[in-house]
Design a protein around this nucleic acid. Structure first.
Lengths: 339, 339
DNA sequence: ACTATTTGCGAAAACGTTTTCGTGCATGTT
DNA sequence: AACATGCACGAAAACGTTTTCGCAAATAGT
């Protein structure tokens, strides 16, 4: 277990001072060529790598970015992380991941832990509890300390920072419009309760599309799911009770659950009922029938978020406070569940 | 942008020395009660939190663990991370995630970056390329520096360290046995090429189960997939050509792809062909029909890996070099794809 | 009243870097 | 011979902590 090599040890072994070693390794002209190569060879031979912690302390930057998300076992978030990690790595950064598990308290604790020097900036998507409580003191606090924050997907208008989102309302509207163009007259929507921003916006977009076509908005055809646990039962009942020929679902799970319920009552997809889902993940690709989806391009969102964060980090911190909201285009992927 | 509070600033503001502040905040009896409470109140008021980097440097430990995995957009790995993150957090640790993207070089680079002081220990699953090359110098190197490593899932016998794996051969054997008990006579296997340890072991277990029952092993019924890209075509051809009444697949994707191919040629599941898959993820739960699976309990594996790593980290590092391999039980989840 | 003991606090080292500022010595210039 | 210049290197500060040690003053013990 060869102890970790430090400048100090090299200096001792070679009979020079620490500063000389440091300078030699950075190829400073202050050091004679012989001394320099002697030190460099020694360092190479014993595979010296400067200690990151010491560098962080000295430079007051860690080259790490913190990502706080509600869940990782969720295809969309996983793709976001993948994108963020890629861009971070390309720029010499590493990512530290913390999961809030949709809990406000855990989100706060995690942020506090990371904010004390562990990272240079945050990428985050708010937990359900946080959105419900509308309590954002923790993110305000880290921003006050001069730590940049980029939010994605689950964002809040109450916080002034860079954001990366998709045009939820617009995408939901296009989805409904797409179904109507295919001939659907009785559209349904399976969405979340309103305090989840994305659910609310998608509901709003859905309604707008119907209104634009002058169609009635039938309240019963809009199902808002609060407790995901018994989504299955709620959706089954909803499918049985409502007479619809097209359904928009705000996520894959709702869509595939609905799809199964539809087939169970003897209707066929897409002939009797067309289905379109948000989030282009594994389920949509492999469900039966495969689902037409609105892809959220998570990889791209993650990449953009990292990009923006790193830009903020590397610009003169003395710069003006200007925040931007990037809207990532969604992509409609047509599969078997629509005509 | 209130500058980050430090001991030094508190000391200046209160007209005492840095050491006094430090001691007061740790409730040392060396400091008088008045001074202590004065300092503590001040610290609380301005929300002082000690700088993690400085602590890391001082204590020579970061309270962070590095996780290196091939992919994150993969349900199994996501569950492992979730489990590791949970246990890590419970013990005051944080996780840093690096993705190798199945590339040897990226695995090496990432390990090198993390090994220079950023973390206290590693949890990792080897990339495909690494397993193919059989080059493990990078993990040996960090181990030589006294940094503990715990491997999971994709491990190597050539490396001596703690490991967390499932009993792949045993699980594959039970899967085959399960199908035979249900009356299947002509079993097929969809697996990976042999240099992926888990694929090899599952293949081996599958064969053992057949031999134990005295059944012939028909080479054509064992499909080894190397390039995942055209797995679809290979599986479709295989299903068409071979006459089988039961199939074991080493992952969900292969299983659901096979399942679709089977239904496409007009056979019914599970009546004509029974299907059983490894990895109990989203696909199995929502495919049509839903799949009987062998759950790998990724959450548990991640948790155990973190547990073992933290134990190693917190024991006297002077302890004996004893390594353990934990075998996590698999769980058979019966669904519609088997009789 | 003189010595022990306790009390309350500060100085300084250490962790591993980088960087600024000397400093001693050889060389070059008058 | 006197002085400026350049070269090659070392000392020390700084980043923010914790901790050991030392020291002065106050208290206690005879």
């Amino acid at each position: 277990m060869a102890q970790k090599l430090t400048l100090k040890k090299i200096a001792q072994d070679l009979g020079v001072s620490i500063s000389t070693v440091s300078k030699a390794l950075r190829d400073s002209h202050e050091i004679s060529v012989e001394t320099r190569s002697k030190i460099q060879e020694y360092a190479k031979k014993f595979n010296f790598k400067p200690n990151n912690i010491a560098l962080s302390l000295k430079n007051q930057k860690t080259k790490k970015i913190g990502i706080i998300i509600p869940e990782i076992v969720h295809h969309f978030f996983a793709t976001v992380i993948a994108g963020a990690e890629r861009v971070a790595n390309e720029n010499g950064y590493q990512v530290i991941i913390c999961l809030s598990g949709e809990s406000f308290d855990k989100e706060v604790v995690n942020m506090d832990m990371l904010a004390n020097g562990s990272i240079d900036g945050f990428i985050m998507s708010l937990s359900k509890e946080t959105m419900e409580k509308q309590d954002f003191h923790h993110v305000r606090e880290v921003m006050n300390q001069g730590m940049p924050v980029v939010m994605f997907d689950r964002v809040s208008d109450d916080i002034n920072c860079d954001k990366v989102i998709i045009d939820d309302a617009g995408a939901a509207s296009s989805a409904a419009e797409f179904l109507m163009r295919k001939g659907c007259k009785k559209l349904g929507l399976i969405t979340t309760v309103d305090y989840i921003t994305v659910g609310r916006l998608r509901t709003q977009g859905f309604k707008e599309a119907l209104m634009k076509r002058g169609m009635d908005i039938v309240p019963g055809r809009i199902l808002k799911i609060g407790d995901v646990e018994d989504a299955g039962l709620q959706i089954a009942a909803y499918i049985k009770e409502q007479d619809m020929d097209g359904i928009v679902a705000v996520n894959e799970l709702f869509a595939v659950t609905a799809s199964k319920a539809i087939q169970k009552i003897g209707k066929s997809i897409p002939k009797d009922v067309a289905v379109i889902a948000f989030t282009d993940g594994m389920l949509s690709k492999y469900a039966s029938p495969t689902l037409t989806t609105i892809g959220q391009n998570g990889e791209e969102m993650g990449g953009l978020a990292a990009q923006k964060l790193i830009e903020k980090l590397e610009s003169d911190s003395s710069n003006e406070e200007s925040y931007e909201t990037v809207i990532v285009k969604t992509s409609l992927v047509e599969r078997e569940s629509t005509p």
